[in-house]
């Protein structure tokens, strides 16, 4: 029973990983690519880790999987934040059909 739950979690995680990478190819500019890929791939990898924990059981490997969930969920948004800020500071424009850019109005790039 618990094996089937693990397989379901791993399958959902793989599906979201694949969707995130398709979003990485399809979206028009850096910020939208970061949006799609960071969300989907982080959730997918955390789901794969939880499925691994369910299938391995409550031993050293399972505990490492749980710690890896916490670590990935804390660091992936931080790296996305750093990358988007660096891209904006280095002068990469938003997509031409974007509606508004209030960040450039407040802190214009030098």
């Amino acid at each position: 029973m618990i094996e089937i739950a693990g397989i379901i979690f791993i399958t959902v995680g793989l599906l979201f990983d694949l969707l995130g990478c398709i979003g990485l190819v399809r979206m028009p500019d850096v910020y939208n690519r970061l949006q799609a890929s960071t969300k989907c791939v982080t959730f997918g990898t955390c789901s794969i880790m939880f499925g691994t924990f369910l299938m391995v059981g409550f031993n050293a490997t399972g505990m490492k999987a749980l710690l890896c969930i916490i670590f990935v969920a804390l660091t992936a948004p931080v790296s996305a934040h750093a990358l988007s800020r660096a891209a904006h500071k280095s002068g990469i424009k938003l997509w031409d059909k974007s509606v508004v850019d209030q960040y450039r109005e407040d802190c214009p790039a030098e």
């Binding site: 969707l19 398709i22 979003g23 399809r26 979206m27 028009p28 500019d29 910020y31 939208n32 799609a36 989907c40 938003l94 997509w95 059909k97 974007s98 509606v99 508004v100 850019d101 209030q102 960040y103 450039r104």
Partner: peptide, 13 residues
């Protein structure tokens, strides 16, 4: 939003 063929996004900061 990723799967939809017309890409229904309207981005901005």
């Amino acid at each position: 939003r990723v799967i939809h063929p017309m890409r229904p996004i309207k981005p901005g900061i």
